[in-house]
Computed example of a mutant assay.
Amino acid sequence: MKKGVLLVNLGSPESPTAKDVKPYLDEFLMDKYVIDVPFLLRALLVRGIILQTRPKKSAEAYARIWTDEGSPLIVISKKMHQKVEQMVDVPVALAMRYGTMTILKGLQELKDQGVTEVMLFPLYPQHAMASTTTILVLAEELRKEHFPEMTFTIVPAFYNKPDFIQALANSIKKHLEGFDYDHLLFSYHGIPKRHIRKTDVTKSHCKIDGSCCNTPSPAHEFCYRHQCFETTKQVVKLLGIPEEKYSQTFQSRLAGDKWLTPYTDVEINKMPEKGIKKLAVVTPAFVADCLETLEEIAMEANEQFLHHGGEEFMAIPCLNDEDEWCGVVANWVKDWSK
């Protein structure tokens, strides 16, 4: 059996225009693992309400971060893919869950190189329905329909793997050099609270209170909230950051649902009045900078922080295509492909 790797990230519209953003949002928001309500209700919400106004607003946000090379997420992911590919001896393909760089194309690319055993690698440190699960489910459907000769080895959430934590901590430390920050905020992508309960394999552990994430349980294998807290805990321990100098929040919520709290925007806006004038924000739910990190944090949150009395704001870049991070991924591939 010939081995190969498929790296999978979120995806991007083809251009920062409402015309291209609309089908991308339709594919994304109509995913039953993203908006997990019955199809007819989901269609009513997405196609009857959200897509009537959201594409124009989202296109404006994408236009703020778009580069001459294209979508930052795609550009960065391609650079990371190329570096990893050069470090290993097996074929490596790159795909996106949504958009034109499909998982189907990625698997076909590997098949064309004779690959029959695939390391399926969702590029998400923490496990969530709306990110990891939807990739794994679609990939398995495509495998059964188009590539029955293939087998998959799934890369689980790597939120607490020592080499990932080390790379993340080193990256944060490097970017904070020379910045005398008052506070370091760990901002993770938000998800609805019901997603936490749905991924609870015990069906009883996750109460989303002050204790369940710190109480050992099999539920933690798929608990996004626990895994976020664990990433933060291990990074600050490695960096020696005192408890009073960091906190954790969740961003990118949609109206109408109960989402994980505290909310990033709410907390950032309150920080200046608490004496936090120099703020650094890191976004460890993402390995590549994208709309949520570049527009929502580096631009929007920055503007709001300064508006509310803050003085200096630093958005720490994601791991992107940093050599150490690419080396970590390459080592995982090498260990698997021996």
Rank of each mutant, 00 (worst) to 15 (best):
K334V: 13
Y159D: 09
A255I: 06
H308M: 12
H127T: 12
E267T: 12
S247N: 09
M1F: 07
E273W: 04
L239T: 03
V37D: 12
G48R: 08
V8P: 00
E244D: 15
Y224V: 03
C213M: 10
L41F: 15
M299Y: 08
K32P: 00
T249L: 04
Q234R: 15
E109I: 03
L123N: 03
V282P: 00
K22Q: 13
P125Q: 05
G48D: 12
S12F: 02
P218H: 08
N9R: 06
R54E: 11
K111D: 13
S252C: 06
H81R: 11
V88T: 09
Y33Q: 09
I35F: 08
K258Q: 14
M314Q: 15
E312A: 14
E273T: 11
K144F: 07
T151D: 15
K233Q: 13
P148R: 06
V34N: 03
S252K: 02
H308F: 14
D289E: 10
P16W: 03
E27N: 09
L94W: 02
C326E: 01
D89Q: 14
L94I: 06
A18K: 12
P55K: 01
R253Q: 15
L10W: 05
P122V: 04
G327C: 07
D180F: 05
V333K: 04
Q166K: 13
L6I: 05
D323M: 10
D335P: 00
S247P: 07
G275H: 06
V21E: 08
T199N: 13
V75M: 08
H175L: 06
V282R: 00
E300W: 02
L29D: 05
H220P: 09
T132F: 09
T231Q: 06
T17K: 01
T293P: 02
P91S: 10
E311D: 13
K277F: 11
D20P: 00
E140Q: 12
M299D: 12
G190V: 10
I268L: 09
P262H: 06
M150N: 11
D257C: 01
H183W: 08
W259A: 05
L260H: 04
M80N: 02
P55Q: 03
P162H: 05
Q227I: 07
C326K: 00
T264A: 14
Y24S: 05
F158S: 02
C206K: 04
V118Q: 01
L136I: 14
A169M: 10
Q248Y: 06
A169G: 15
E14Q: 13
S77D: 11
D68C: 05
I191F: 09
E27R: 04
H183G: 02
T102R: 09
E85D: 14
D265H: 13
P218R: 06
C223G: 07
P16C: 07
D89I: 02
Q82M: 10
K245Q: 12
C326H: 00
T102S: 15
L142N: 07
S217D: 11
I196S: 03
